[in-house]
Design a protein around this nucleic acid. Structure first.
Length: 495
RNA sequence: GGUUCCGUGGCCGAGCGGCUAGGCAGUGGUCUGCAAAACCAUCUACAGCGGUUCGAAUCCGCUCGGAACCUCCA
């Protein structure tokens, strides 16, 4: 790597500033992201968050770090509300679909995997489940109890936020002050709540007799609290203190705040060095969320069956669309924006194909190293993918002008440029050329098209325009478009 | 109500004190048997009002509008 490149900076939600990234144990990096609760289909807002951290994972790997990426599956313990009668989301869904809770878990875990694979996300290094770590969760509850930061009521264990806040900074991540909140939520304290203090949260919840998924514990049969599993699984696989924790903005409070409190309460260690939060996907300016019933499911987007869409957009178009915005900004869904992204994405892919066919010259009239440096610098600036894409389009212009004979590239620069596009477009941004995707007979088609184009060029040389146009028009009906240049003709499949 | 964030050209979306962001759409050329693509050139901006500064989309204040969180959410 050249030394003109800046170091990596990450926007840390904890400090509200971009900070130079310094791993705790280089070259190793621990990255944890809150995964889905598998009680229903993931929607595109969920996909966006996982995509954000997919790019983080990819880029850190590109920089040479040995990244252990942990993303959990919440398959128990995510209760609807924190009240005594709180019901597990998965059990509720199981009743609705008349299935075993673990059938629900399997069904939606499979769906989740299929979906993120379609968007070309790399699977994490470890994908632990909450049900697989009940023992560790019980142990952590015990440590918190032993340290005096929790209390037992009727077989449930609650985290004692008031006591914790006397000795530690509760609210440091979300910028919340307990005293301020107390006044607003006084009415919430009414009723037969088991909690001593409104901000307390369950770390172990007593299970009702009819609950199917429950485990024995020192406090009786129950389930672990939702916040607990992430504390347990992140530190189990990444250490009591690890580098990066990611998740959606909406998890910042209370979920992530509680994670910090639990780790500090149990082990006295602030677990995370860099907190990263991805912003929300919105529809008509409002957050996409399951409870608001404004979700786009991936298949509704791809098929175009969603009522707000004019047509379908591919997974890669969507990926590109998301990456054209900063992960810390909201993104709003609209036909026009998606259509623009689709065209831009295709133009980028077309240029990469062009790059394959460029012939080297003796010298270069364009600055390839600057382009490479620009891309690295923008990614180093808190994974700024929109600016990186802008630089890649500068490169598109460069590639096309070389192909057009207006500029030149020597062999070393050409090789560098090809490597650069491979690295940034495919490996880091994680895009792929959908024309080729999943086609086993692509090379055959390519060879056949080569013959067809040869025939057509012969017709053109003989000024047999009728034949030339016939070939082009008939191919057009098969969604294959021909592009003529001075030297040769190329083809492209359009859906 | 509290906390935080945002308002950029026809649309999307960067920038965060002086230097063309970029994509899509539009306009005018070049190329071409025609078409498409490509190339070159080019038009639309920083919500409003004040302030700081030699200089502000960028910093500060106010006003208007929108969003997220405040124990369901990626």
């Amino acid at each position: 790597m050249d030394n003109t490149t800046s170091p990596l900076y990450i926007y840390n939600s904890l400090s509200g500033k971009k900070e130079a990234f310094k791993p705790l144990n280089p070259p190793f990096v621990g990255l944890y992201t809150c995964g889905p609760t598998v009680y229903s289909d993931v929607h595109l807002g969920n996909v966006r968050t996982f995509l954000t951290f997919d790019v983080v994972f990819r880029y850190l790997s590109y920089l040479g770090y040995k990244v252990r990426y942990v993303r959990n599956i919440t398959d128990v313990g995510h209760l609807l509300g924190d009240a005594a009668e709180g019901e597990d989301r998965i059990e509720k869904r199981a009743k609705l679909e008349k299935l075993e809770p673990m059938e629900i878990v399997q069904k939606y875990t499979n769906g989740f995997h299929d979906t993120i694979a379609a968007f070309n996300l790399i699977p994490p290094s470890i994908e632990p489940t909450a049900t697989g770590h009940i023992v560790e969760q019980i142990e952590m509850v015990q440590r918190i109890l032993d340290n005096g930061y929790a209390y037992i009521v009727n077989g449930s264990v609650y985290f004692d936020v008031k006591k914790y806040a006397e000795q530690h900074k509760y609210g440091e991540l979300s910028g919340r002050k307990i005293e301020e909140q107390l006044e607003q939520t006084r009415e919430n304290l009414e009723g037969g709540d088991e909690k001593r203090f409104f901000a307390d949260f369950a770390i172990w919840k007593k299970a009702s007799p009819e609950t199917i998924m429950k485990w024995n514990s020192p406090w009786g049969e129950g389930v672990p609290g939702w916040h607990l599993e992430c504390s347990v699984m992140s530190t189990k696989y990444l250490g009591k203190e690890f580098d990066i924790h990611g998740g959606g903005m909406d998890l910042k409070f209370p979920h992530h705040e509680c994670e910090i409190a639990q780790s500090v309460g149990a082990d006295g260690v602030n677990p995370v060095k860099y907190w990263m939060h991805g912003n929300m996907l919105t529809v008509n300016g409002t957050k996409m969320s399951k409870s608001l019933d404004n979700s786009f499911l991936p298949h509704e987007l791809i098929s175009g069956s969603h009522p707000l869409l004019d047509k379908g957009y591919s997974a890669m178009t969507t990926r590109f669309f998301f990456l054209q915005a900063n992960y810390r900004s909201t993104v709003d869904f609209s036909n026009e924006a998606l259509l623009a992204a689709e065209k831009g994405y295709k133009r980028l892919m077309a240029a990469i194909k062009t790059l394959d066919n460029i012939r080297a010259s003796d010298s270069s009239s364009v600055d390839v190293n600057k382009l490479i440096g620009d891309c690295r610098n923008s990614m180093n600036d808190d994974f700024n993918t929109p600016v990186t894409i802008a630089h890649l389009f500068d490169g598109v212009k460069m590639i096309n002008s070389v192909a057009d004979g207006k500029n030149t590239l020597n062999q070393p620069d050409l090789d560098r440029l090809r490597t650069h596009y491979q690295d940034f477009v495919f490996d880091i941004l994680g895009l792929k050329d959908e024309d080729d995707a999943g086609e086993s007979n692509v090379t055959l088609l390519d060879d056949v098209m080569h013959i067809v184009l040869d025939l057509r060029n012969q017709s053109k040389q003989n000024k047999d325009w009728a034949t030339a146009d016939f070939i082009r028009d008939e191919l057009k009906k098969l969604h294959i478009s021909i592009k003529d240049s001075k030297e040769s003709s190329t083809w492209e499949y359009e859906d």
